[in-house]
Design a protein around this nucleic acid. Structure first.
Length: 758
RNA sequence: GGGCGAUUAGCUCAGCUGGCUAGAGCGUCACAUUGACAUUGUGAAGGUCACAGGUUCAAUUCCUGUAUCGCCCACCA
């Protein structure tokens, strides 16, 4: 009987078909879901929203993405099945610097130089490239079963979204939070852009520690130094000799007996023949090196601070490409920093000023994206003063308005807010949202006036002996303002840091603070994302959320860890130890992968991929299929009607089932998916299958078809099966919906399991 | 240098606000079964819950310290 039920659940094929059913129902759209609930006479609960973390549109999703979606989906499906119109809002991120790097490389491999095709063409092609990737990403998202509302999908470069981001920028400018400043920044010589501190990493690399002498200018001082210090000058030690060309002071600790009498005296920087002063600074470490440190405000963040404290001159000697520049001897100009360092050391040695060179290992700041060593340089950039915003976010954390799971990470976030620095938001890239600013008379004029407070356009004209072409004011807007009296407006070429737009994700995707969706679905309920972007993302979203909407964008951040290779190492393309999600889908199916995530990928901790475990979960999926099939096979066609309409008694088995469901619901509500997953597996497999089905098998063995006992027992078993399918559905939606649809075919169930209520 | 977390079976890990012969999956071993089950079932072996103190009637669970590992932050020339 019922021969039409296939012997196995062909996951790779059936999962796609089942997803189509969900898609056609439109129930992932909360408006549709709300109407469904109303039509069914089910009490409508408050809406539930998660704006899903947008994956980078520059590549294909990996297992880590799938893991995140599995968690989003279990929550989303559960909410939907408990009366909440649920919105899982998907999107894709343009990922500025990273995508620009990836796409530039791709062009290069095709023999195309990005400078040749120009900014506009580059942007257009990169956009197409992203659109292509987005399509593929969407397919993966559907493959894992993500019940997101794709009719609301957003790309971070969508005009509707950009509009809201620009509004934020204008508002911040008016409120005095955004400003242009000349300070030391992290320049990535490879990506050729400024980076925020948070976009850098630190790595131990081999380097040198060179000791050399800055002779005193004054004859008397030289004599004294020879006596006291053993040389005719101050010996300084540095890991970066090339920066000496930009030195404007030598700092010593005021308590350092060795140098006390030399404070205020002048020494001579060789090559550039600059006389610089020995200054006293508390921060100078007497133990390190010689206790005297050369100060290069233009090329070291520490020295920049010292420079600020002592009003030192800033002398730029390294440019954006990490080449030597400025007022230095011709022979060094254009040299790379390392070559220049070697050349200088050699000449210092010849001059008798080199004391020694030590080989050391030290921490170097590197670009988070391309791992190139950072070059600290002075430059004009746009900044956001985030201090007041951070304070609000910190308060919200302390008050418990926002929680982070696992809680240890919450402390890390608090620490981040407590020590937050101005955020550099401009990037010298093409791929991103162009900063909507116009400079009357050019950017150079504006920056010059900004740097030289109190001076006017005439002073600028005098300084550069040119005629200014505008007032030096700026205009904020997307379109060029009208020119008057021949003034020239120069458009800002920089783009926003990616996080400036993704930080606003929870409300930009809902149409901004005035959008229709915003009214219905903001604030959202939670945010699930990878732990490693906690500061970048949740850190920013909380601040922006308060700023634009006056409230938290969501009340819970739930962090996922990383999926590692089986041996515990990081999966990476270069190592070739990566596993493609499609491989897993084809081999074991999405449900098996999901079950593995719930069991193994605990919040905040990394999990090595264990294929045997996924296989074990695939067996569980097969078990569900077969148990269901067995139950259905035992029902004779002539009994269907009676069983479908039979009243199920409150038996021990039914009671236990209800208690089980309650338990699992509690686990889901507490976000303990590992316990929930274990519970459904344990209960269905070892209680329903191993015990109850066996019992019923015996109970109906000798009974005639159509008999009261059979109807009663089979109806009870069917009830238990259906209840189990419902509670398992948020975890493993495909197999459960697949079985449900078999029931529907036989007239034993109705509708989609997806919209059933538990 | 500062902060956070981890240390439980061969492996990967659960164990929420203290009380059980300390659990799961995978692996190992024995037996059973061709059954609804690209298998499944029954059972077994395997842990002084890192170490040392403390609180308690009771500690894997709370506190303190030690060791080892990991992560994050930090300007150490």
């Amino acid at each position: 009987m019922n021969k039409e039920i296939s012997k196995t659940f062909e996951s790779s094929q059936r999962e796609v078909e089942i997803y189509k059913l969900w898609e056609e129902s439109g129930l992932s759209n909360p408006d549709v879901m709300k109407k469904y609930l109303e039509d069914e006479g089910i009490e409508v609960q408050t809406s539930f929203t998660i704006t899903l973390p947008p994956p980078n549109a520059n590549g294909t999703p990996h297992l880590g993405h799938m893991c995140g979606y599995a968690f989003h989906d279990v929550i989303g499906r559960y909410r939907r099945m408990t009366g909440h119109p649920t919105l899982l809002l998907p999107g894709k991120d343009h990922a500025g610097i990273q995508t620009e790097a990836v796409f530039t490389k791709l062009l290069q491999s095709q023999g195309i130089d990005k400078q040749e095709i120009g900014r506009e063409e580059f942007y257009k092609r990169c956009y197409d490239f992203c659109v292509m990737n987005m399509k593929e990403a969407r397919e993966y998202e559907q493959r894992i079963g993500l019940s997101a509302d794709f009719s609301r999908e957003f790309f971070t470069l969508d005009e509707r979204l950009t509009k809201v981001v620009y509004e934020t920028f204008y508002k911040m400018y008016e409120d005095g939070l955004v400003y242009r400043d000349k300070r030391i920044i992290n320049q990535c010589p490879s990506c050729k852009t400024a980076l925020a501190d948070i976009d850098t990493e630190h790595e131990e690399r081999r380097g040198i520690f060179a000791y050399f002498i800055y002779p005193f200018v004054n004859e008397e001082d030289r004599k004294k130094a020879k006596e006291k210090l053993g040389a005719e000058g101050v010996t300084v030690a540095t890991t970066r000799p090339e920066t000496m060309l930009g030195d404007t002071a030598v700092a010593v600790n005021p308590n350092d007996e060795r140098y006390r009498e030399f404070i205020g005296k002048k020494v001579l920087v060789p090559f550039v023949e600059r006389e610089i002063e020995v200054i006293a600074d508390e921060e100078t470490d007497m133990e390190l090196g010689t206790g005297a440190v050369k100060v290069t405000p233009a090329h070291s963040p520490v020295d920049f601070e010292i420079g600020q404290r002592h009003s030192l001159e800033i002398v730029n000697v390294i440019d954006e490409d990490a080449k030597m520049t400025g007022d230095i001897p011709e022979r060094f100009k254009g040299m790379g920093t390392i070559d220049c360092s070697k050349a200088l050391v050699k000449e210092l040695d010849e001059m008798g000023l080199l004391v020694k060179i030590e080989n050391i290992k030290h921490e170097v700041a590197i670009c988070e994206r391309c791992k190139t060593a950072i070059e600290p340089i002075i430059s004009n950039q746009w900044y956001v003063n985030v201090e007041s915003l951070a304070k609000k976010a910190l308060e919200a954390l302390k008050e418990g308005d926002v929680k982070v799971i696992p809680s240890g990470q919450q402390k890390a976030l608090e620490h981040f807010y407590e020590n937050i620095q101005p955020w550099c938001i401009s990037r010298q890239l093409w791929w991103g949202q162009r900063i909507p600013v116009w400079y009357s008379g050019g950017k150079k004029l504006f920056d010059w006036l900004n740097e030289n407070k109190g001076k006017g356009v005439q002073d600028f004209e005098k300084e550069f002996s040119t005629k200014a072409t505008g007032s030096g004011e700026i205009f904020l807007g997307e379109n060029m303002p009208e020119s008057q009296n021949g003034e020239v407006w120069e458009q800002e070429t920089d783009v926003f840091d990616t996080w400036f737009s993704s930080g606003q994700w929870p409300y930009t995707t809902l149409g901004g603070p005035n959008g229709e969706d915003f009214k219905k679905y903001y604030p959202t309920q939670m945010m699930i994302h990878a732990r490693d972007i906690l500061f970048w993302w949740t850190g920013r979203m909380l601040m922006f959320g308060f700023y634009r909407t006056g409230q938290v964008p969501y009340s819970l951040t739930w962090l996922t860890g990383m999926i590692l290779a089986a041996d515990g190492s990081k999966m990476s393309k270069s190592k070739g130890n990566g596993v493609e999600p499609s491989e897993v889908f084809d081999k074991y199916g999405a449900d098996a992968l999901r079950m593995w995530y719930y069991s193994d990928a605990l919040p905040g901790s990394n999990s090595p991929l264990r294929e045997e475990k996924i296989k074990g979960n695939r067996n569980f999926v097969t078990k569900i299929w077969n148990a269901s099939r067995f139950i259905l096979m035992n029902i004779d066609d002539s009994e269907i009607e009676a069983i479908a309409s039979a009243k199920v008694n409150e038996t021990e088995r039914v009671k236990a089932t209800k208690a089980h469901i309650k338990k699992v619901k509690r686990y889901i509500e507490k976000y303990q998916f590992n316990l929930g997953a274990e519970e459904i597996r344990e209960f269905f497999w070892h209680q329903v299958c191993d015990v109850w089905i066996e019992e019923v098998k015996a109970e109906i063995k000798e009974q005639e078809i159509g008999s009261q006992v059979r109807i009663e027992k089979l109806a009870e078993l069917l009830y238990i099966l259906k209840e189990n399918l419902k509670i398992m559905h948020p975890f493993i939606p495909f197999i459960t919906e697949g079985v449900w649809q078999e029931l529907v075919k036989l007239g034993l169930a109705e509708g989609l399991l997806m919209s059933q209520q538990i």
